[in-house]
Design a protein around this nucleic acid. Structure first.
Lengths: 192, 192, 192, 192
DNA sequence: AATGAATGAGTGTTCATTCAT
DNA sequence: AATGAATGAACACTCATTCAT
């Protein structure tokens, strides 16, 4: 994990908040600097450009997320279903009502250096894919294309977190989302 | 369905293409005008501002989509599963490699008039929800919260269309997506 | 006197009002057309350009004024003092609280065709100058440069009408202005 | 007196020159910036908008004028007539052939913040009014409404400076204007 | 004659980026 | 390292003018 200096972190935190709240072009670097309590020029000591800052925000967010989710796959004795459940629940709880984080799950880059950033997304998919494949291995799951399913999961969670239905409590949503995913993966008892 | 004049349509088509390809602030109105073969001032005869044009693009896109999908729910003798399959397939085929259309499924608006536009998204969810509910009614499906499932479906499709796995052919993807959704909804045979 | 068609008059009236109320660049021809109830293109049937319309407004205003004032100089048996009094009173009463008319007395044009319009101002000055000279001739007035005094008079009136002191009634103002001008012109009794 | 920074002064000087020479809408901010040797963006560090710059120009001009004229009223042992003569002469000499300064004497504001600007005009009138009142006090002058006379004086001077008669030399004009004003104010010897 | 939809040159304003301090 | 005044390229938007009807 990359280490961020104090100032750098403050900038990233501020920028994350603002990029999540407003579209890119409405986020002014002068505002970022002011809110982060640094000089406007200071931004350029840490980030090459506005685009660069934007990517750094997304990148850091993604890295933190993936890092956190990885833990669940390393818990001794947890089944793939348990792991998936934990992952889905964790993502929803961390991102619901936190547009800043939910947004980044679905950002599509129209930008040159999006390659580097694309890698991070793939990292998340790979994590999920390996859990699914472990489940298949263990006979718990069946899935003709774990790669695709792995891709569906974050997108479902993103949608939930961006547009959380107002009259359903978070716990119910978590359960429903877990059930939705797991039921799709569950291996049907072989018709005897 | 709102009717668009000839020039208005040309502008919307052009703008849709450009907003889908580049981030908002890289889309120049002068380019839109040039490509649409109208004067720059003409844009302002039909749209109050760049933002307004942007919303009009999203709004029209959504309207067209919903209108098209509605047809599948009106086919005589088609089961809810069939309808869902058709809808999923239709959306994927229409949007894959057409970022312009896929993007709009997930746009979150940070703008004042986003209310009006939210309605359109809800219209899509409602359409799907009623298909699911019909399936529950007929005993085909079971779902503790069709509202949520209805929301998942477009998000899954959006993800597919924005990041289509390169080494999987479209047909396979369609089938996988349909299967994923339907398996989750299918009522399990009551354990005898 | 030039004759104006019905539509032309409506346009001039509207434009006069608007040019008096707002600076040139805030007056939109589309507004003029709308308020005058004519098509925007119609303006161009009568006036070559916005500048042209502007000059026409000033020109007509000046012409009307000069025409009206001329009458006072033609009254049989009226002394130059009487004539001046009438002129000053007439101008004040016609222009006080009518910025549109007062404004034009002091408009300076930076435009090419301002010459033609300047002539009209000179016409006003000449009118006044000849009254003053008549007074000198008759021994009533003395003035080392009637040309200058003639120029002062409209400027005094303009100031009154643009910035009418709120707590002084119009009659008092008229009397004061007349007295101010006449006292300056009056021939002092030759020190015997 | 407000203090202006170096750059601010350069901008104001340039803008004053240009606004005096051309109508508002023909003055381009890019020209102002170029002539003042600053970046176009720099204008906006000091002035909120083109309108704002315009007002700043007029305001500063008026402030300087009033400040300068005040001096004459503070000269030890000078009579009100002397003071008035000095004021009239000073204004004419400073403004004749300097449209920039003459213009501002008569600007009527069609703008929102004209209140603040109205104050400045009143400041000039008050200055003149108090000189006149001092003359009345000392028995030199008589005037039934010094407030009005104070208003006439700048307007007369403005007219002179905007439309200076070409074939009369400045000295003659000054003398005539002084005489015109003073004769009107002079207390007539009581008819013995 | 009369219109107003269409135009595009022209301009005010913004804002990412730089650099002297 | 840190700053923020200064910059100017870039862009949205306006509005006088035209012309097909």
């Amino acid at each position: 994990m990359k280490k961020y200096s104090d100032k750098e972190s403050r900038i990233l935190d501020t920028a994350a908040e603002m990029f999540a709240t407003q579209p890119f072009h409405k986020v002014l670097l002068s505002d970022v600097a002011r809110v982060a309590s640094v000089g406007k020029g200071t931004l350029y000591l840490y980030f090459k450009s506005k685009d660069d800052l934007y990517f750094a925000v997304l990148f850091r967010g993604f890295s933190i997320l993936v890092e956190r989710l990885k833990k669940y796959t390393e818990v001794e004795g947890s089944s793939p279903s348990d792991q998936l459940r934990c992952i889905v629940r964790d993502m929803i709880l961390h991102m619901i009502n936190k547009a800043s984080n939910a947004q980044l799950l679905g950002k599509v880059m129209h930008y040159p250096n999006s390659g580097e950033w694309q890698e991070k997304r793939v990292e998340l998919w790979s994590l999920l894919q390996s859990v699914i494949e472990a489940g298949i291995e263990s006979g718990e799951f069946e899935d003709s294309c774990p790669r695709l399913t792995a891709q569906y999961i974050p997108s479902v969670i993103r949608s939930i977190c961006l547009f959380p239905p107002e009259n359903i409590d978070t716990e119910t949503i978590c359960n429903h989302a877990c059930a939705f995913v797991l039921k799709s993966l569950k291996k049907n008892a072989p018709s005897a």
